[in-house]
Design a protein around this nucleic acid. Structure first.
Length: 761
DNA sequence: AGCACGCCGACT
DNA sequence: GTCGGCGTGCTC
């Protein structure tokens, strides 16, 4: 190495936006490379940092030496550094924390315990060793087992000979076996999967696969595969992936949540065998580590995972597949707020790879990108088994106003349809996007709702558990308490949740076998699989579920879907409310009739004329899109504008409000400075400047109290920055964060920056 | 994030 | 007079 690097630039996993220059002692110079972890002194602490590249000593008065180099090979490919840097810049997040988020827990975060490769005691026979004296029965059994297998884990031996540990030691002393520690590979997969061969494609699928394959090797491209439910998207994914693998490139498959990883994984494993690795937060730290290492060293070239798998340490990515690309689970809503769907596109662009975004109900954003020429559209309009799409009947819930109790929510039409379906021995799915029994418990004495102590929400009655529960913070009180305001014991159980529907269905159809699928019933490990199995084996006649039932699971025996109330998400104070509603309705409706019998859907709503409901009835995405995109344009919402939301929270209501107002004032000051000598508008107004192009300004909305003004004891405020110009928006946010450290940090109040926010409540 | 420095109230 | 509260600023 001519010109050895003496200084390196290091990122540390702390909320600091600087990187730091360290000197490398002579003895370690040959060991360092970008992407390696190093132990560095930091103040009076020691930290694990990440080498970003060569560093510069210019203008730095004090440079300290690194203490140690922690890996002989980088934990992630150096080629991923530009990806991390891009994310750090875009999401305004410290690069060290970005990298820390990317690495699997346990690889050696901070200075916590290090989960290295797991090892086990392993015994192997020494060939041709001379047996001096006859062995005891147990020792002979151990020797027999070892010679027949050529070596075994001592743990396995102990299953044959209970005293194996002792015997192996004795045999080692006699020079007959050699004992060593071996790394073990922890297999996260369940049962072996029988191999499977590529299916014959229908013409639509064939066209999709050949278009994607045709783009491979020719640089970055994004395809949006819009395929109705049951149209065979997964087969398209697999055949495209097979071609990518054949070209010796890696494939990354993202699915929205862990429950769907296993289904996708089974299908991919059947096709790609040991090439498949999985990455998601459901794996134990050890399993994750092993999967990571397999991917890192190129043993697994097809990676399937949830959101965080976007960080898989693959080299030479040829294809990134994002299944159910509209799903909001791709957005991380804690510490580091990123969107894995968007980052799939960024990572592919950097790698010159092809992206395949798939969905039955594509996001407005992605369809806009198709229409503006950034993405290329592929369509699967036909279901593979040629079933017709289900017929959707709308029932107006306003007509039920005079009905009592459950009859307000089970219309005669739905009741009749359920009766007919059950009489035919077919299965029913009822969807209601709200769990619990009564979602609005109200005191009959004083009219007060039962409220959470820590949050600005009503508690939900969970009758089975006998508690009122807060869905925000988990706070719960016994359901037999009296009203906190007036002491009355008469608390009305208003509001409908899945648990109440379950009770009602059991009463209406006493002979039907009823099951419920929501976060409460699948909390127990294995419960979800039991429900799915129960459905397949026809041990369940009626399934009642939340959102969860809309997500990708295949329910072949269901011929009737009842949507109890389609409007719940329609009134959310969120510009995406219509989009979310359309998606969930279309997805739930798509659960009907995936087997060989036609399906039908009864959709109950208070807003039958609403364009979202009408479009969902006709399963006509483009009609929905055309109306929705007009609304987005009128109010300058994404995709026409970009947004950054500042989320401010603190325990003290006054301090939080004051802080939010200070940050708001600072934003306006910065904006005024950036856009020249004109003053800003009156406080609280949209600040726009005379004489310049209004559409290119950054709008500052707020601060306002969040719709959920308190969660888990934290008072919440928000400021929304909005602009048609991404660069302007980012410039303002960067100035705010980087140049005003003191003004935006406080002991009592925290500020989170959410770039491209999803949940605005 | 930590950890030091520095500046004000209430205790031996 | 010192102990300790917390606001401010820095860590190569």
């Amino acid at each position: 190495m001519e010109n050895p690097v003496t200084y390196i630039e290091v990122a540390v996993p702390l909320p600091v936006f600087n990187t730091y220059t360290y000197a490398v002692p002579e003895s370690m110079r040959a060991l360092i490379a970008p992407g390696l972890q190093v132990l560095v002194p930091f103040g009076r602490r020691k930290l694990i940092g990440y080498i970003l590249g060569p560093g510069s000593a210019d203008g730095i008065p004090k440079i300290r030496e690194i203490i140690d180099v922690l890996d002989e090979s980088a934990v992630f490919p150096a080629a991923m550094l530009p990806f991390f840097q891009w994310m750090a810049a875009y999401y305004l997040h410290p690069i060290g924390e970005v990298i820390c988020e990317a690495l699997p827990g346990g690889i050696s975060k901070k200075k916590k315990a290090v989960t290295g490769p797991k090892t086990e005691r392993y015994a192997a026979p020494i060939p041709d060793a001379v047996v001096a004296a006859p062995l005891t029965e147990a020792r002979q059994a151990v020797m027999d087992a070892l010679t027949s297998g050529g070596g075994m884990a001592v743990r396995e031996l102990a299953k044959i000979v209970p005293s194996a540990h002792r015997q192996v030691q004795a045999l080692a002393d006699k020079g007959l076996v050699v004992v060593s520690d071996r790394p073990v590979y922890r297999d996260p997969f369940g049962d072996p999967v029988p191999p499977d061969v590529p299916h014959k494609l229908n013409p639509e699928q064939y066209r999709a696969v050949s278009t994607v394959v045709g783009a491979m090797g020719a640089g970055f491209a994004v395809f949006l595969l819009a395929g109705v439910t049951g149209s065979g998207k997964t087969e398209v994914y697999m055949q495209a992936a097979a071609e990518a693998v054949r070209r010796d490139t890696a494939v990354l498959v993202l699915v929205p949540e862990i429950a769907l990883v296993s289904e996708t994984e089974r299908r991919f494993r059947a096709r790609f065998g040991d090439d498949v690795a999985v990455l998601h937060s459901g794996l134990s730290a050890g399993e994750r580590y092993d999967q990571w290492v397999r991917i890192r060293c190129g043993q697994s070239r097809v990676v399937i995972g949830a959101r965080s798998a976007i960080f898989a340490p693959l080299t030479d990515i040829g294809l990134i597949i994002v299944d159910e690309e509209h799903d909001t689970s791709y957005k991380q809503e804690s510490r580091f707020r990123y969107n894995a769907r968007d980052m799939a596109v960024v990572r592919a662009r950097q790698a010159g790879a092809v992206v395949l975004l798939g969905s039955a109900t594509p996001s407005v954003q992605s369809v806009y990108n198709v229409l503006s020429g950034k993405f290329c559209e592929l369509n699967l309009k036909r279901r593979i088994h040629r079933q017709a799409m289900p017929e959707i009947h709308i029932e107006d819930l306003r007509k039920q106003k005079e009905s009592r109790g459950i009859w307000r929510f089970i219309t005669p039409a739905l009741h009749l349809a359920m009766k007919e379906t059950l009489e035919r021995g077919e299965q029913v799915l009822l969807f209601l996007n709200r769990r619990g029994y009564a979602t609005w418990p109200v005191c009959a004495g004083c009219g007060q709702a039962v409220k959470c102590r820590h949050c600005d929400v009503t508690l939900i009655l969970h009758q089975g558990a006998g508690v009122y529960k807060c869905h925000q913070c988990g706070y719960a009180i016994k359901s037999n308490v009296a009203c906190a305001t007036c002491g009355s014991n008469a608390i009305k159980r208003l509001g409908m949740g899945t648990e109440k529907i379950e009770h009602a269905v059991k009463a209406l159809f006493p002979e039907a076998r009823v099951a419920r699928m929501d976060r409460d019933t699948v909390a127990r490990k294995g419960a979800l699989l039991e429900i799915l199995k129960g459905l397949r084996h026809r041990e369940i006649d009626v399934l009642i579920g939340t959102q969860m039932v809309a997500k990708g699971h295949d329910f072949p025996g269901i011929t009737l879907v009842g949507i109890i109330c389609a409007d719940l998400s329609l009134s959310f104070p969120d510009f995406r409310a219509g989009e979310l509603t359309f998606q969930v309705l279309a997805q739930v409706a798509g659960r009907a009739g995936r087997g060989d019998r036609p399906g039908r859907v009864v959709l109950q709503t208070y807003n039958p004329e609403h364009f979202t409901i009408a479009a969902a009835r006709d399963q006509d995405f483009m009609t929905f899109y055309r109306q929705e995109i007009g609304f987005r344009q009128t109010f300058q919402y994404p995709p026409f504008a970009r947004m950054i939301q500042l989320k401010i929270s603190g325990r003290d209501p006054e301090k939080t409000r004051e802080f939010a107002e200070n940050v708001g004032a600072l934003c306006r000051k910065l904006q005024g400075r950036a856009t020249g000598p004109h003053g800003t508008g009156p406080l609280g107004n949209k600040t726009a400047l005379a004489g310049s192009d209004l559409s290119e300004q950054v709008e500052i909305l707020g601060p306002i109290e969040a719709p959920l003004s308190r969660i888990a004891g934290q008072y919440r405020w928000q400021i929304l920055l909005k602009s048609t110009r991404s660069d302007q928006l980012h410039r303002l946010a960067r100035q705010l964060i980087f140049d005003n450290g003191a003004a935006i940090s406080s002991r009592h109040v925290s500020l989170a920056v959410d770039v491209d926010p999803f949940f605005m409540m």
